[in-house]
């Protein structure tokens, strides 16, 4: 017959630490509703969404031609634009929730949002 040893203090400690760690993890994963900031781009009635942390270069079509938006190291700026005055290219890199860049001639609107943008209608563009 096998003689079962009792669990030791160390056993209980390991199990306890694991339970607490998983609990904390679950709380931080499911508890907070705010995700990482997202870059929301609206142009010609369409919408693009990127994480602010995704290093990527996006080409957004507009009436005058493509607008190139660069997301790099948590910041967003327009790196190339086909519009004439190039105002948006000269605008500073944005990185915080609520900041925006607009490229009026080419109808491109870029802003940073904090929470899921799901409820937003695709066509509630203000311009």
């Amino acid at each position: 017959m096998a003689e079962m040893k009792r669990l030791t203090l160390l056993d209980a400690g390991i199990i306890g630490i694991t339970v607490i760690a998983v609990g904390l993890l679950a709380f931080s994963v499911y508890g907070s509703r705010e995700g990482t900031p997202q870059v929301l781009i609206e142009a010609s009635g369409q919408q693009w969404i990127y994480s602010i942390e995704s290093d990527t270069v996006v080409s957004i079509p507009g009436p005058l031609g493509p607008t190139e938006v660069t997301i790099h190291q948590g910041g967003v700026h327009v790196s190339d634009s086909t519009c004439r005055n190039k105002v948006c290219e000269s605008m500073k890199t944005i990185s915080r929730i609520g900041q925006w860049i607009i490229c009026l001639p080419n109808d491109v609107f870029i802003r940073i949002e904090g929470i899921e943008t799901g409820e937003r209608e695709v066509d509630d563009v203000a311009f």
Binding site: W48, S51, G118
Partner: peptide, 19 residues
């Protein structure tokens, strides 16, 4: 769940993105 790219459509408030 991690949106990336053009929004194709929205499913129960989750934007389905092409990327």
């Amino acid at each position: 769940l991690q949106a990336h790219g053009r929004v194709l459509f929205t499913l129960w408030s989750l934007p389905i993105t092409q990327g």
